[in-house]
Structures are given as structure tokens and as C-alpha cells.
């Protein structure tokens, strides 16, 4: 029995990294389908995707990482995938950890597996400010939901059918990760974390660094609001 698995790769001006990404993803086993989502890149990303003949979705303009990933989740839902995983196009998420995430969801009976920077080695190369930010977010989530998520900012996450169905209808648009963690927990889904050694970014900077205080304020507000909103009664209702 094999499951239908989808890798969602959000692409925003990633042309510099795409050839390497094609090579790495091309070496994957057949059990994973790859779907690139071009979020209105202004560089040659789209042309590279076309030339490679890869399966991709081309958003007419940039709608941000949340909407971009949600597009992939909608695709996964519609095409009846059992699992979908977000894998960032900047090479930060190690492809080798895919099977570990899948295994965790299968064996540990959780709905979402997060590739976490913190679970294994405490000395992970994460900058001081970022670490502080993550700690604040993590404690807030603990207070709001009673559960411990060590790395709520990680975008490297594998979703099962149930969480795909929920998130394809309702996914935060900006800085989506911590907010969606609270949303999922609030709606009774189970999240596990798998220790993952992230690659150092080959380019770009994280939004928590770029936007600093604004990021924290927006995410904190969103998380509190998620808790204050009523639960999603069932899939599709809004």
C-alpha cells in the first residue's frame, strides 16, 4: 500500500537556485510528486520551470507565501493526495528528511509533522534574535493552546489528508507558520516535531529577521485572534 505524496515548492525569484533544486528533487524516489508554485516571480524562474517541463502552477502576481502554499494545498486536496509537504525553494529544507517526516506522521499518529530546528541539538546555528523570537512565539503557543511546539516558525511541514482539507480552506496569508500552528491545534489536530538539520540559506533572509518587531506583533495578534475565533465546524464551512 503506497500513499499519494506531494511536495509543494513555493517559488519566488528562485532562479539562482532552481537548477540545483531540479537536480535534488529529480533524484527523489517515484513516490513523491513535485508541484512548483511560482508566486509571481520577476526573474527567470517561470522560464526555467517551463524549460524543465516540471509540473507547476503559475500565479498571475505575487500573493505572498501564505496564499502560495495554500494554492498547493488546494491542489493537493483536489487531486486527493494523502500527504503534502512544503519544501522551500531556497534550499533550506533538507530533502533527506522527507521520509522521516512521513514516517513520523504514520507511526506517531499525528496530523502534521514539523521539521524542527531545535529538537535534537540545542546548538543549532540559529541567530540570537531569531532564537529569542522563536522562544517568545513558542511560549505564547504554550499559553494559548497548552502544547509545546519548539519550532513554530519552521515552514518545513508535512500535512496529512485531514490537515490538507482544513488548511486548503483556511490558511493565513502573511507570516503563516505560527498562526497556522495555533489554528491546527485549536481545531484538534495533532502536531509532532521531527529534528531536522536545516541547510544554511543559500540566499534570501527570513521574514522574522527582515521585519523584526512588525513580524512579532502581527504574528502574536494573529495567534490570539485564532484562539478567540470559533472552531471550524467542519471542512468547507466558513
Amino acid at each position: 500500500m503506497s500513499s499519494k505524496n506531494l511536495i509543494i515548492v513555493p517559488i519566488f525569484n528562485e532562479a539562482w537556485n532552481l537548477p540545483l533544486l531540479f537536480e535534488r528533487l529529480g533524484a527523489l524516489k517515484k513516490s513523491w510528486d513535485v508541484l512548483y508554485i511560482n508566486d509571481g516571480s520577476s526573474d527567470s524562474s517561470k522560464e526555467l520551470l517551463e524549460a524543465q517541463g516540471s509540473n507547476f502552477i503559475d500565479l498571475a502576481y505575487n500573493i505572498g507565501i501564505g496564499g502560495c502554499v495554500q494554492t498547493g494545498l488546494k491542489y493537493a486536496f483536489e487531486h486527493e493526495y494523502d500527504y503534502a509537504v512544503q519544501l522551500d525553494g531556497d534550499g533550506q529544507h533538507p530533502i533527506e528528511a522527507l521520509s522521516e517526516l512521513l514516517e513520523e506522521v504514520n507511526s506517531n499518529e499525528c496530523d502534521i509533522a514539523i521539521g524542527s530546528r531545535f529538537k535534537r541539538d540545542k546548538k543549532h546555528p540559529v541567530g540570537r534574535t531569531r532564537r529569542l523570537g522563536i522562544r517568545i512565539l513558542s511560549s505564547t503557543i504554550k499559553v494559548l493552546t497548552g502544547q509545546t511546539i519548539l519550532d513554530p516558525t519552521s515552514g518545513y511541514r508535512l500535512f496529512n489528508r485531514k490537515s490538507i482539507s482544513l488548511l486548503s480552506e483556511n490558511y493565513p496569508q502573511d507570516y503563516p507558520e505560527p498562526e497556522s500552528v495555533v489554528f491546527l491545534l485549536k481545531n484538534g489536530l495533532r502536531i509532532c516535531e521531527v529534528p531536522v538539520r536545516m541547510n544554511s540559506r543559500e540566499g534570501g533572509i527570513s521574514s522574522i529577521h527582515r521585519d523584526g518587531i512588525f513580524y512579532m506583533a502581527k504574528v502574536m495578534l494573529s495567534m490570539i485572534m485564532v484562539v478567540l475565533r470559533p472552531k471550524e465546524s467542519s471542512h468547507g464551512s466558513r
Binding site: I37, N55, F56, I57, D58, L59, A60, Y61, I63, G64, G67, Q70, T71, K74, Y75, E78, Q173
Partner: peptide
């Protein structure tokens, strides 16, 4: 508007694919 806008972009892109 921005909510509608991104939903429109998503649906349009999915249909195009």
C-alpha cells in the same frame, strides 16, 4: 479586496494548470 484578490489568483492559476 486583498482576500478576494488572492483567492482569485489561486483559482485562476489552478484552472490554468
Amino acid at each position: 479586496l486583498s482576500r478576494n484578490n488572492s483567492k482569485l489568483a489561486q483559482d485562476q492559476a489552478l484552472i490554468k494548470q
